[in-house]
Simulated assay, not measured.
Amino acid sequence: MGKAGTQEKTRTRRHANRLPAEKRISDILAAARQVFTERGYDDALISEIAERAGVVEGSIYRFFTNKRDLLVKVVEIWYEQMLEEDRAQFAAVKGTWNQIRFVVLQHLYSIRREPGLSRLVFQKLRSEPNYRETRLFQLNQSYTHRIIDIVRAAVASGEFRPDVSAGLVRDLIFGGVEHRTWAFLRNEGDFDPVALADDLANMIYRALAVADRVAPDQAELIARRLEDVADRLERVAAREAKA
């Protein structure tokens, strides 16, 4: 290594040492989010994260146990940000159908904005044996629980049938979203967040609502959307049959 390179590394080390710990942690997490999003987990290098954060590599291990620990912290912060943003907006949403659609649409937008982090959650973190014991699992439960609250409130008010399982509705919605966006996450397709949110909200509401609680104009809208969904499914089936 030349003299110039050595001097540069020395300046970087001194600069990093002068930074408050909170600032260094924040810079490391921001850099890690970029690298994990761009490279995935396996190809992400601690050395590149350190370089982007403007710290020496050893600084990362002062605050994080290993690369996995760093990824977990990045994803936890992402969930916390989404929960906070959604909480403020959700308070203004009125009506069961609108609330279901809001939750679905926000989830779809999060996948659209952060496909790299979404892949890491679905493929890497959620499949680990101790996932249900982690704080990330608890955050995900909070993130998805709003659907349970919406459904329970609709059941209590008589808008939804009394035999509805709120947990099953949550699983159907988030499982359905994951299935419908998987091609996008594999870079093999795309999806329309608004159209998909409308379709899911319509199907869920129509299936759960007590018949005489559905307004005529809403029933007509739901029927049209269901017909559109059926037509699209038929076209997909026809294409797959020809393949």
Rank of each mutant, 00 (worst) to 15 (best):
K3I: 14
G5F: 09
G5H: 07
G5S: 15
T6I: 15
T6W: 12
E8Y: 13
R14K: 14
R14T: 09
R18T: 08
R18W: 00
R18L: 10
K23A: 15
R24L: 10
I25S: 01
A32I: 04
Q34N: 13
V35I: 08
T37G: 15
R39F: 04
D43P: 03
E48A: 12
E48R: 11
I49W: 00
E51W: 07
E51L: 11
G54F: 02
G54K: 02
G54D: 02
E57F: 02
E57L: 01
I60E: 00
I60N: 00
I60G: 00
Y61T: 09
F63M: 14
K67C: 04
R68Y: 11
R68N: 08
R68S: 08
V75D: 04
E76H: 05
I77V: 12
Y79F: 15
Y79D: 05
M82H: 13
L83A: 04
D86V: 10
D86F: 04
A88R: 12
A92V: 08
N98D: 11
Q99W: 00
V103N: 00
Q106P: 01
Q106W: 06
S118Y: 05
R119K: 12
F122H: 04
L125F: 08
R126A: 15
N130K: 13
R132G: 14
T134S: 15
L136Y: 04
L136T: 09
N140P: 01
Q141T: 15
S142N: 10
T144M: 08
D149S: 15
V151N: 03
A153S: 12
A156W: 00
E159D: 09
P162C: 01
G167Q: 11
V169E: 02
V169H: 02
R170H: 05
D171L: 13
F174M: 05
E178C: 06
R180K: 07
A183Y: 03
R186Q: 15
E188W: 02
L196C: 03
D199N: 13
D199H: 10
I204T: 15
A211L: 02
D212M: 03
D212T: 14
R213C: 08
L221V: 11
A223M: 02
A223E: 07
R225K: 13
L226V: 11
D228G: 07
D228A: 15
A230G: 05
D231F: 13
R232K: 14
L233C: 03
A238V: 04
A238M: 03
R239C: 02
A241R: 13
A241T: 06
K242D: 10
K242L: 14
